[in-house]
Amino acid sequence: IEEVKKIVSEIQSKQLTRITINGNTYQVNSPEELVEYVRKVFS
């Protein structure tokens, strides 16, 4: 979970619009959307 928080804060600070998780690239339009992807991947 700490690793996830680190990734999320990194993305928020860079305002990235794409994230790659487990080889899948997602278009991310908002931090909320990012959190949803993270929940799916780590749930």
Rank of each mutant, 00 (worst) to 15 (best):
V41N: 06
K5C: 14
S43I: 10
V38A: 02
N24A: 11
R39K: 12
E10D: 08
S30D: 05
V38Q: 01
E10I: 13
V8R: 03
V8A: 05
K6N: 09
Y37M: 15
V38H: 01
T20P: 01
T20V: 10
G23Y: 02
Y26E: 01
I19R: 00
S30G: 03
E36L: 06
I19G: 02
K6H: 10
I21N: 00
I7Q: 03
S30N: 06
Q15G: 13
E36N: 06
V8E: 04
S13G: 07
Y26H: 05
K14L: 11
Y26K: 04
V28L: 14
I7K: 03
I7T: 03
N22S: 05
E10N: 06
S13C: 10
V35C: 08
T25Q: 06
S43L: 14
S43T: 09
N22E: 04
K40F: 12
Q15E: 05
V35M: 09
L34I: 01
T20F: 06
S9K: 14
T17C: 13
Q12K: 11
N22P: 01
V41L: 15
I7V: 07
I21L: 10
S13F: 10
T25M: 13
E3H: 11
T17H: 05
V38Y: 03
E3W: 15
Y26G: 00
V8K: 02
V38P: 00
Y26V: 12
E32K: 05
N29P: 06
N24P: 00
E3Q: 12
N29F: 09
V4E: 08
N24L: 15
V28T: 15
V41D: 01
L34F: 02
K40T: 07
E2W: 11
R39D: 02
Q27T: 11
Q27C: 14
I1L: 14
T20C: 11
T17R: 06
I19Y: 09
I11Y: 02
Q27M: 09
E3R: 13
V28G: 15
I21V: 05
I1G: 11
I7S: 01
N24T: 15
S30P: 10
V41A: 12
V35K: 02
S30R: 05
E10P: 02
Q15L: 10
E3F: 15
E2H: 08
G23L: 03
N24H: 13
V8F: 07
E33H: 03
E10C: 14
S30Y: 05
K40W: 14
P31F: 11
V4W: 15
V41P: 00
N24R: 14
N24K: 14
P31I: 08
P31M: 10
F42K: 00
R18F: 08
T25L: 10
Q12P: 02
S9G: 09
Y26I: 14
E36K: 07
I1K: 10
I19P: 05
S30W: 06
T17Q: 03
N29S: 13
G23Q: 03
Y37V: 15
V8C: 08
E3M: 14
K40D: 05
V28S: 15
E10A: 07
T17K: 06
T25A: 05
V8I: 15
E33V: 04
S43R: 08
Q27Y: 08
S43V: 07
I19Q: 00
G23F: 05
N29A: 10
Q15C: 11
T20W: 06
S9W: 14
E33M: 07
S30L: 06
K14Q: 09
R39N: 07
V35E: 07
N29C: 12
S30K: 04
Q27S: 13
V38E: 00
S9Y: 13
T20Q: 05
L16T: 02
I7R: 02
V4F: 15
Q15K: 12
Y37W: 13
K5P: 04
K14Y: 07
E33G: 07
K5S: 13
V41E: 06
E2S: 10
I11G: 02
T25W: 07
E36A: 09
L16W: 05
Q15H: 10
P31D: 03
K6R: 13
N22W: 12
E32I: 04
I21F: 09
L16N: 01
V8Y: 05
T17Y: 08
E2R: 07
E33P: 00
N24W: 12
T25F: 09
E32H: 06
N29H: 08
I1N: 12
L16C: 13
V41Y: 13
Q27K: 07
I1Q: 12
I19D: 00
N22K: 08
F42M: 09
V35I: 14
Y26D: 03
I21Y: 04
R18T: 10
I7G: 02
N29G: 15
R18P: 00
F42E: 01
L34E: 00
S43C: 14
G23P: 15
V28F: 15
F42H: 02
K6S: 09
Y37A: 09
I11V: 03
V38I: 14
L16S: 01
N24Y: 14
L34R: 00
Y26T: 04
Y26C: 07
T20E: 06
E36T: 04
L34D: 00
E36V: 08
T25Y: 08
E2N: 09
S43M: 13
V41W: 13
Q27E: 12
I11H: 01
S13V: 09
T20I: 08
E3I: 14
K5Q: 14
I11F: 02
V35S: 04
I7A: 04
S9C: 12
N24D: 06
I19A: 01
K5W: 14
S30M: 04
E2T: 08
R18C: 14
E10S: 05
R39S: 06
S30A: 04
T20M: 08
T25C: 14
K14H: 07
K5A: 14
E2F: 11
I7H: 03
K5I: 12
L34N: 00
K5L: 14
N22M: 11
V4C: 15
S9M: 14
V41T: 06
Q27I: 13
K14S: 08
N24I: 15
S9V: 09
E3L: 15
T20S: 06
I19S: 00
Q12N: 07
